[in-house]
Design a protein around this nucleic acid. Structure first.
Lengths: 153, 153
DNA sequence: TGTTTAGTTTAGAACGATTCTAATTTATTG
DNA sequence: CAATAAATTAGAATCGTTCTAAACTAAACA
C-alpha cells in the first residue's frame, strides 16, 4: 500500500464516519485534481447534506467557523474546479454574486429577491413547454427556470 | 402654455420625427423624473427600436458615439430609474454584468453563453405548464426562463 | 526512501462592474 | 427672476472576483 493510498484512506475515514464518500475522490481523480486537505474539507462541507446553495464568501466564512484553514482564493478555485468536475453547478440569479448548487441534477430554482434565499424546485412541480429552435449555429445547452418570489408585507 | 410645456414640446418634436413618443414623458412624469437632456437622449437610444438588450457600459459607449454627453454614473442612474418606471426591465443571465431589456412585457430569453448575445423568445413558442407553490410567506413575482445555448464548434 | 517535478495554496495586488460622494449644474416653483 | 429641489458629474470607494508570483505539498521516479 503506497503512502498515497494510506493517506487517502485515513482522510477518508476521518471525513466519512462510514458514509459513502468515495465518489468525491473519484470525481477529483477523473478531473485530475489532487485530493488536498482544502479540497476534501470543502467537499465535506458542501456535500455532506444534499441540497445547498452557497456563495464563495459564505463558504469561506463557514469553513473558517469550522476551523478549516483555507484562503478565499482557494475557495474560488475549488468552487470552479468542482463545477467543472460536475460536483457542483453554478446558478445565476443575481448580477454581481455567484451561487453554487450542490444538486447537479436537472432542476430549477425559487429565488427570494428580498432575502437572497435560493431553493430547489422539486422536478414534478414544474414543467415548461419549450418550442423555440436554437438560433442558427447554436445548440441548446440547458433550460433554466427561476421563480422569483417576494416576501409578503 | 407654460415654459415647461413649450420646452417639452420642442424636445419632443426634435426627438420624434412625429413618431408616438409621449409615453416616455408620461412614464417619467408618473415616476417623478424630470425629462432632462440626458434621460431623453438615452430614452431615444433605447426605445427607438423595439427590442434591445444592453449593459450600462454598452449604452454609455453608444451614447458617446452618438455625440451625447453623459457620464457613466448617469447611465447607471438612468437605467435603474427607467427600470423602476417600467420603461426597462433587468435580465440576469451572467453574474457580474447586468443586462437591461427594452421589452417590458412578459417574455423569456435565449442567451448565447459563448458570445454573450441575448435575445427574446416569442411568447407563443414557450409556456409554463405547471408551477410550484410559493414558499410560506412569499408570493411569486415572476417566472423567468433562460434557454442557454452554445455556439456550434 | 530522497529527490525531482508538477500541481496547489496563498497573501495581496489588480480588476471590472457598480455605487457613492460632494460639488456643480439644471429644472421647476413661487 | 430668485429660491429650492432635483439631476449630473468626476472621481473615489466598494464589491465580488481573478490574477500573480512565491512558498508549499503531493506524486512520480530513481
Amino acid at each position: 500500500m503506497t503512502l498515497y493510498i494510506q493517506a487517502i484512506a485515513i482522510i477518508y475515514k476521518i471525513m466519512n464516519d462510514g458514509r459513502p464518500y468515495s465518489y468525491v475522490l473519484e470525481r477529483l481523480k477523473t478531473a485530475r485534481l489532487r485530493p488536498t486537505r482544502q479540497r476534501l474539507a470543502l467537499a465535506k462541507l458542501l456535500l455532506e447534506t444534499d441540497d445547498r446553495h452557497v456563495t464563495a464568501e459564505q463558504l469561506h466564512c463557514e469553513a473558517s467557523s469550522a476551523g478549516i484553514k483555507v484562503s478565499l482564493a482557494t475557495v474560488y478555485n475549488t468552487l470552479h474546479q468542482f463545477t467543472k468536475a460536475d460536483l457542483l453547478r453554478e446558478v445565476v440569479v443575481e448580477s454581481g454574486r455567484a451561487y453554487f448548487d450542490t444538486n447537479t441534477s436537472e432542476h430549477h430554482h425559487i429565488f427570494n429577491q428580498d432575502t437572497g434565499e435560493l431553493c430547489d424546485i422539486p422536478d414534478e412541480t414544474i414543467s415548461v413547454l419549450v418550442l423555440p429552435d436554437a438560433p442558427e449555429g447554436t445548440k441548446i445547452d440547458r433550460v433554466e427556470i427561476i421563480v422569483r418570489v417576494k416576501s409578503l408585507r
